[in-house]
Design a protein around this nucleic acid. Structure first.
Lengths: 184, 184
DNA sequence: GTCTATACACCGATAGAC
DNA sequence: GTCTATCGGTGTATAGAC
């Protein structure tokens, strides 16, 4: 078995992500990955025991990258604006859609997705708490701000990818006003 | 070619929806549909020219049903509460995830999904306008309320299906307070 | 580490009998 | 309206040579 951290292992994980985003999970096959990587199909099974392993490792790679981006993008001056920008410029919504669909049926992936959601929400909550001098009002707690922000950003990205823009400008203005109101 | 409105056509559309929700779009094959319907594979192609047609008709059926539910669930007394309840009790989030993923790559389905999103948003906006005596403030327009509501409800359902509940109670309370504040 | 070759199952779609 | 039968293609996964 080859290592995931080897050049070829990384190439295959990159290929898997590209295929998922551009062609969907039904096209994520060992043959398709091997084409992308310019090798023969058999080699995929040298680096990944099963296709399930490849999918899970692929998500793990994405999650690590996104959590890293989230942590470093939060400045101490405008954490709310930073979180919002980060949510709006996150992983491609088509790729997210594939992982979401897969996670409903793949137990291993589901666990990874749960960990990712909870960890990123924790990071966002910490940043929001710092932004709010009072630590959040009785009506608007940090966890609610984090949830609303990421939900709305995801929906905006998803619809934009489909070609729907109805109300998007209004919503973006509203969010910006909200952030401005809390941290100028 | 058989009609979609025939008993067998409806049975196959129902089968397609069940398979999508329970096994994902990779399992939505003519053979699988025929098993569900208790007939032979060949018959699927008597009712649907291609599997793409079956998928699109399947979504259309769902869209018609949901739009109908949305229209009839809105009372004149508590439209905001009604919309929220409807969004929280909409189609299974696993089924939605499959259609969302498919729509990014299937042009015909994409058009149907766009129509559905815009039509349901229109219905929601009309109801919200009636609820707001002023027709919406400068900062909180009906379209923004509609967008935020459906985004957040979808996210709550999606995460609940995965097994994540972090912040859900807080968010639900917040939404309820908001609706109560506007329509008691 | 990468390859050839293969087993076996399933796919969409079609021809044509009843 | 439903069936049997079949085509060519693709899927996961493995055996084993180099």
């Amino acid at each position: 078995m080859g290592s995931i951290d080897s050049a070829m292992g990384a190439t295959m994980l990159k290929a898997a992500e590209d295929i998922l985003r551009d062609e969907g999970y039904a096209a994520l096959t060992s043959r398709r990955v091997s084409e992308y990587a310019g090798v023969k199909q058999r080699l995929v099974y040298y680096y990944f025991a099963t296709m399930d392993d490849l999918i899970i490792e692929s998500f793990r790679r994405l999650a690590v990258r996104e959590l890293e981006r989230l942590r470093t993008s939060i400045s101490s001056n405008h954490p709310l604006h930073d979180i919002w920008d980060m949510c709006m410029n996150t992983a491609d919504s088509r790729l997210v859609a594939e992982f979401m669909a897969l996670a409903n049926r793949n137990e291993g992936l589901r666990q990874e997705v749960i960990k990712f959601i909870e960890e990123s929400r924790d990071i966002q909550i910490s940043a929001i708490k710092k932004a709010l001098a009072s630590g959040g009002s009785k009506d608007l707690k940090p966890v609610a701000i984090a949830f609303l922000g990421s939900s709305v950003a995801l929906a905006l990205n998803r619809e934009a990818a489909l070609g729907v823009t109805m109300g998007h400008q209004t919503v973006k203005r509203l969010i910006k006003q909200f952030c401005d109101g809390l941290e100028g």
